[in-house]
Design a protein around this nucleic acid. Sequence first.
DNA 1: TCTGTCCGATAAAACGTTTAACCCAATCAG
DNA 2: CTGATTGGGTTAAACGTTTTATCGGACAGA
Lengths: 349, 349
Amino acid sequence: MTVTIKDIAARTGLSITTVSLVLNNKESRISSKTRQLILDTAEELNYIPNQMAVSLVTKETKTLGLIIMDIANPFFAELSKGISAEASEHGFDIILCDTGDSYEMTMRSLKVLASKNVDGIVITLSDEIREEKMELLADFLQNHTLPVVLIERADRLVMSDCLNVNHEKGSRLAAEHLLRLGHRKVGCITGPAHLEATGRRLKGVMDVFAERGVKFRPELVVEGDYHIESGYAGTEKILAADSSVTAIYAFNDLMAYGIYQCLKDRGIRIPDRMSVVGFDDIFFSKMLYVPLTSVALPIRQMGERAVQLLIERVANRELPRRCDVLEPRLIIRESTVPPCPADPPDRKA
Amino acid sequence: MTVTIKDIAARTGLSITTVSLVLNNKESRISSKTRQLILDTAEELNYIPNQMAVSLVTKETKTLGLIIMDIANPFFAELSKGISAEASEHGFDIILCDTGDSYEMTMRSLKVLASKNVDGIVITLSDEIREEKMELLADFLQNHTLPVVLIERADRLVMSDCLNVNHEKGSRLAAEHLLRLGHRKVGCITGPAHLEATGRRLKGVMDVFAERGVKFRPELVVEGDYHIESGYAGTEKILAADSSVTAIYAFNDLMAYGIYQCLKDRGIRIPDRMSVVGFDDIFFSKMLYVPLTSVALPIRQMGERAVQLLIERVANRELPRRCDVLEPRLIIRESTVPPCPADPPDRKA
DNA sequence: TCTGTCCGATAAAACGTTTAACCCAATCAG
DNA sequence: CTGATTGGGTTAAACGTTTTATCGGACAGA
C-alpha cells in the first residue's frame, strides 16, 4: 500500500536506520554508493515520509495554527495570505480555524490545535472575549505552553508576543492631511465606542488638532458601526449639527461609501464641496467614481511579521516578550482637496 | 511535561488500555466506578490526546487539505469559508495551502498534504495546469490514492469527484432578462478566450438568442481579461461597432465597473441609456451608485457541497464518481431597465 | 601479533496511541 | 461439582519514524 522506510530497507537490503540517516542526510559516514542506492529506490518507490511518525518522535510538526474570526472578511483574508506565504517560506503549513467570531469556537480550535501538536498559533480575538473568557483562554495557553502571537490585541493576561497596527498614527495622518489642506470644520464617523481601536483612532485626531491649535468640535463626532448605513446616517447627523462642515473622516471605508451615498442624495459634490477620508483602503476604494483617500493598513506585512515572530519563538522559547507595531500610510486620491471658500463671491475672479 | 494516557494510567493504577478504552468510550465492560475515576483524572490533569499517535495507528487524521489559488481573492475566501464551516461541522480541520496560482506550489502542497496524511483534499486548479502538468498531477493523485474533489474543473485525467457551477445557465439568466426587457442590441465583454468558463458563458448567451429568434451580433462581442480596464476598453470597442447598443453584459463585475466608468466619461447614463449586467455579484456591486444587476454564484454552498462529497468518499472509497453542478441566480438591481426608445420623437407624448 | 582508530552500518528503544488476544475470578446452568 | 459464561481488566504488538549506542572489520602503528 503506502511505501515506508521499511520497504526501502527491504528492497536495498539495508537497515532502516541507514535509510533514515540517508533520507535526512545526517551522519556523513555513509558510503556514497549506499547513499545513492537508497536515494534512487526512494525515488522509484515514490516514497513520502509519514509526518505523523516523524512528529511523534521529533515533537515538532512544522505546522502552525491560525485562528481567525472570519476568513471571508477581506481584512482577514489578506492577513491569512501574508501568514500563509511567510509560513510556506519557512517550510511550515497552516491549519485554518475560522471561529465566526465565537468564543466557544475559539476555545475548541485551541484544543484541536493543541491536540494536533502545532508548533505555534497566530490568533485574532473577537472583541467579545474579555474578562472571564480571556482568563480561561489565558489559562489554557499557559497550561499547554503553546507559542502564540496575538494580532491586534495586547493583553496582560496572555503573556504572548503580539502585533498591532498604529491606529493613532493612522488617524494622525488623516487629520494632518485634512488640516494641511485647510479644512477646519471636520466631521468624524467613528467605530463602536467600546472598541479599543476606536479610542485610539479618535485620540489621534484630537491630538493633531490640539497640536496645531485648531479647535476640535466634539459635536461633529458621531458613532458608527462600520457598516455602510451608519456612514449615511452619520453624515446626516453631522450636516444637521453644522452644515458648513467641509470634510468628513470615516473610521472605515465602508462608512465612507455611506457618506458618498448621502452626499449624492443631497446633491453635495465630492470633493468640491466636501472632502472625504476613509480608513482601511479596501480594494474597491480606488474604483469609486471619486477614488477615495484612505488610511492603508499594512495587512499583509502584518501576517508575515506575525509568522516571523512566531517562528522565532518556536526556535527559542526563552525570548523576552515582544510587541511589534506596524505603521499605516495615507493613500491620497481624489476625494480630498482644499475646502471650497465659504463665500464663493470673494474669489470669483 | 505534556500529560499522556500513561500518566493517567499511573495516577489511577490502571492499565493504559483501560484508560484508552474509557476515553474513547469503546467496550462497555468497564465498571462505571473505574470509568468515572479515569474521566475525572483526565479532566484534572488537562489531558489532551496526541493526535499524531492516534493517527499513526488509526490511519486517519480528521484533517482535510485545501489547495486554493489565492486566499486573498474574495471568491476563494468565500469558498474557503464554506469549506471550513462544513468541515468543522463534521469534526474535520483543514490545512490551507495557498498556491498563488503556481503549478510548482500546487505539487508541493500535494506532497505536503500526502505527507501529513490528510484524509482528503479539495483542490482549485489554475487554468495554466493542463496537458503534461495535468498528467503529472493526475499520476500523483492516482499513486497516493487520495480522495479529492476538484472545484470548477472536470477532467478525465483526474478520476475524482468534481463540483462545478453552471456557467451556461448563469449566462442564460442574464440574456433572458435582457431580452425580456426588450433589448435587442446587446454587447458582451467576455473573459479570456482560452478559459472553459468563457466558452460556456458565451454559449449560454448565444443559445438564448437563437431560441428566441433574436439575431446575435458577433461583432458586439469583445474579449476581456476580468480586469476593470478591459471593461472600459471593451465598452469603447462595442460603442465604436454600433453606438445604438442598449445593453452590455460583462462576464464579471469588475469589468462591469469598467463599463460604468467609460459610460460616465461619455455622458451615457445608466440605466436610462444603457443597461448593464455583471457576473459574480461581488460584495460591492450592490453599493455602486447604480446598484448592479449581476449573476450570483452560490459560492459558499459550493464549498459546503465540496466537503460533503469529500467526506462521503473518505467514508466509502468505492463510491462511483460524482460530478455535481450548482445553479447560479440572477440578482436584479437598478442597472437594468427596458431600452429607451430608439427615436424619442415617436412616443414623445 | 596485539592494540587502537576509523569506517560503514545496524540493533533497539522510544514517541503516544489503538486493538486483538488473553487472563482471572466469580457466577450460573445442569 | 463441573464446565461454560460473563464481567472487568491486562499484555503486548503494531503504527513509521528518529536516535543513541553498539558492532565488526580493516588498517596502522608498535
